[in-house]
Structures are given as structure tokens and as C-alpha cells.
Amino acid sequence: MNPAAALALEQLLHHDIPLTRDMGVKVIDWQAHRLRLHLPLAPNVNHKSTLFGGSLYCGAVLAGWGWLHLRLREAGIEDGHIVIQDGQISYPLPVRSDAVACCTAPEQAAWARFLTTYQRRGRARLELHTYISEQGSDAQAVRFIGQFVVHR
């Protein structure tokens, strides 16, 4: 685990994306190229006493954005601006408690292509997969596929 990177990411999110403070987003850990974020129910609750779909979408995007931010830093790239270009989300299960948003590494070949393209052109696109589960559960309540673009 890299607690310093996790803390730095949480501070960055709260500073650069103030909505994350109001949502109560916390970085749980950054380990083995997997990022996990905590999404509390209370500040994100809807009229059905479940986590609001917009908060779930935001949490899924943030997990992907944060994952890419951390991996770029590990690769020594600090001049890139990350944006979400496109995202598809499904909500197969309601989230009735605090949740965990998790983004894992894409295939190594996809990451290598992404880095090569970015270094050559100053712009590259990467597809990342995020899922959200209720805290303490392995059942994927939300599945997200995002196209992230990094440009100089």
C-alpha cells in the first residue's frame, strides 16, 4: 500500500473537485495498481434511502480519474490533464449502505499503448473499468466503463 499517494490524491480531489468534500469521498487505498474510494451513504442518500445514482456515477468517474492520476505519477508524467470523454454505467443493484468504488488496472498491453501514444503525441485515450459495491460486499452494484483522455 502507498499511504502517501492515497493521502495526496484525497487532498487533490478535495481541493480541485470541491464536490468530493461534500460527497464525503475518502481514498481507502492504492495498492497493486488498484484504487479504492469510500462513498458514504449519508451525504449521498436519495428519497429511497439508497445511494443517489448521480453520486454513484461521480464515484465511478472519480475512481477512474484517480487511478489514472496515480499511474501517470508513477510513470513520471506530471504534465497531463485528465478528462472523462465518455462513460457507460449500469446499476444492477441498489446501494443501501456506504460503498466502495474500485478501479483496477487495464491489461498491461493497453497501458503500454497508452503511454507510448501519450509520449509520442501528447494526447492519449484509455478505457478504465470501475465497479461499486456496498462496503463489506463483493457484489457489484454498479459497473462503469469510462474513456479517459490525457492531454498536455
Rank of each mutant, 00 (worst) to 15 (best):
G87A: 13
I89G: 05
A99H: 02
P40G: 04
S55R: 03
L70E: 06
N44P: 05
D98Q: 00
A75G: 05
T20D: 03
Y118E: 02
D138M: 15
T104I: 15
N46S: 00
P94A: 12
L56D: 01
I145D: 07
I82C: 04
L93D: 06
D138N: 13
G66T: 02
N2K: 07
P92R: 13
Y118N: 04
S55V: 01
F52W: 10
G54Y: 04
C58D: 04
L93K: 14
Y57S: 11
L128R: 02
R96L: 09
A101N: 07
T20S: 10
H81A: 11
Q31E: 11
H129E: 15
L93W: 15
L12D: 10
G66F: 00
A109W: 14
H14E: 08
Q147I: 14
W30V: 02
G80H: 08
L115Q: 12
A112R: 13
H69R: 12
C102A: 04
V150P: 00
D16H: 04
Q85C: 10
A110Q: 12
L13V: 07
I17L: 07
E134R: 13
N46D: 03
I28M: 07
V100R: 02
Y118D: 01
H69K: 13
G87Y: 05
Q108M: 11
A105T: 08
A141L: 08
A139Y: 12
A6H: 01
A139E: 14
I145A: 08
A109Y: 10
S55K: 03
L12W: 09
R123K: 15
D79N: 15
G122C: 11
R71S: 12
